[in-house]
Amino acid sequence: MTDGPSSWAHDLAAGCVLAGVGVGAIVVGQSYGIGTLQRMEPGFFPVALGVILIGIGLGLAVSALKLRARQGHATTPLFDVPDWRGWLFIVGGVLSFLVFSTYGGLLPGAFACVFISAMGDRTTTWSRALVLAGCVAVAGSIFFAYVLKVQMPLFTWGPA
């Protein structure tokens, strides 16, 4: 579950991630030139943010280690297991929108996106997902194409 309180393991990982982003910001940022306070170059701001991020990350990590010392090692469960089925189909839904709207147009893109992502729910059925996808695709495409005049053809063949 992605709910539940934050454990020391979360905070430790969170601190490391932030510090890592900070390091990245410094490494890339300094290539734009740092300059001085008076004459700042484009790299100054990102490098400063990177330093702050590293500070925050270390702070989080230290407090996480303190928490571990107090709570002991046996805090279950350490990390969440994502819902792989939902994940696969939601990511797949967006990707299929990219593919089908490029090679097929708005209507096929909408249908594929809704249908595939709907299949990510474990309680749904083929027929339900098909009906939902059909309704949303038709109503949505007409609304976006004719009312809002989105710059995407309803149907097309091959890359636009």
């Binding site: 709207s101 708005l106 309680t123 339900r128 939902l132 949505g140 976006f144």
Partner: peptide
């Protein structure tokens, strides 16, 4: 189960229409 797939489509088309760019 009906909400999120529909919202996902609105997200895709909405983001596309900001710059007409996939």
């Amino acid at each position: 189960r009906y909400l999120y797939p529909s919202a996902l489509f609105f997200i895709c088309i909405g983001v596309f229409s900001t710059n007409n760019d996939l």
